[in-house]
């Protein structure tokens, strides 16, 4: 099992006195794995440790059976797309891939064919001679994925890849990740729960450096069942309800407001509803006592 998985045992990371990762235990298998958590939860720290650009404080991490200390071997089997992907702006798309491919130890005719194939996969073949400075944000992210896949890695680590993308580009990107996940482990770190729902079978939730959930997306949603309600109320009641419940959604129509909220006790006049992953994620944070007011300001 270890030869095909990422095994994380008792992983800790300190930045000075700040405990950024607290005793993380996690096994990640082939396919898409979502790492969910709010900003500052420790996702990027974990991603960087797995990508060998950050030292762990203690614990054990084995990637496909190889200890993390063996950085050169880990880098051979890992592709990484960091949160902020940039490349030399004056380089063309093709030149950038060629350069990064050389840094990944690629050479020869097959390597150049592979670049063409990847450009086609990420739908950038028409942009091969375009300078990177001229690419849109979405195109840059797709180029980022292409560079991470150049050496055909067994592990792909992508950190917040859809942040800032328009809906069409986000869907295109998610589909691309699902495609490449069929033959490798893909770890998708994000704070956008919709990305996890659309692509991942398994997920973990990090909160303030702690792993508060590790399991299937299905179970995550299941756990929230019986705790998510909708209520039709007068618009003027919103302020009172906000103070009372953890609201996950408000839809207004004229004087009426349809409110979606989380509660662990039955609520009069409210109807139980089927939770979505967003509700489930919020329910988890709520259950772990780390729920923050997300109801927004006054209307």
């Amino acid at each position: 099992m270890t030869e095909n998985t990422i095994e994380i045992k008792n992983l800790n990371k300190f930045y000075g006195k700040k405990h950024a990762l607290k005793n993380i235990n996690l096994t990640i298998e082939k396919g898409m794995f979502g790492l969910l958590g709010r900003n500052g939860a420790g996702k990027t720290t974990l991603m960087r440790i797995l990508a060998t650009t950050l030292q762990k404080s203690d614990g054990e991490v084995k990637i496909l059976g190889t200890d993390l200390k063996n950085t050169r071997n880990i880098r051979k089997i890992t592709g990484y797309l960091p949160q902020e992907f940039s490349m030399y702006p004056s380089m063309s798309v093709y030149d950038a891939l060629e350069y990064l491919g050389i840094l990944s130890g690629m050479s020869g005719k097959n390597f150049r064919e592979n670049i063409d194939k990847l450009l086609s996969t990420v739908n950038l073949q028409e942009k091969r001679n375009v300078k990177i400075r001229s690419l849109s944000g979405g195109m840059k992210r797709r180029l980022g994925i292409a560079q991470a896949l150049l050496h055909n890695p067994k592990i792909l680590i992508v950190d917040e890849p859809t942040a800032g993308l328009d809906p069409e580009e986000r869907i295109r990107f998610r589909n691309l990740l699902s495609e490449v996940a069929s033959e490798r482990i893909v770890i998708l770190s994000t704070h956008i729960v919709g990305d996890i729902e659309a692509t991942c079978e398994k997920t973990a939730i990090l909160n303030a450096g702690e792993l508060i959930y590790n399991g299937t997306v299905e179970n995550l949603i299941k756990n929230a069942e019986g705790n998510v309600y909708t209520l039709e109320a007068d618009r003027s009641e919103i302020i009172v309800l906000k103070k009372k419940y953890n609201i996950t959604g408000i839809q207004t129509s004229g004087n009426k407001a349809f409110i979606r909220f989380i509660s662990d006790t039955e609520v009069k006049n409210a109807k139980l509803c089927t939770p979505n992953i967003e509700d489930a994620y919020m329910f988890y944070l709520f259950e772990k006592g780390s729920f923050v007011n997300i109801s927004g300001g006054e209307i």
């Binding site: 060998t52 050169r72 880098r75 940039s86 840094l103 990944s104 130890g105 050496h151």
Partner: peptide
Amino acid sequence: KDKNIKEIIFTKNISSFQL
């Protein structure tokens, strides 16, 4: 020049000496 792309280059397989 590498300031903004260090994270990408760091994870590549090439040895620091060779680069």
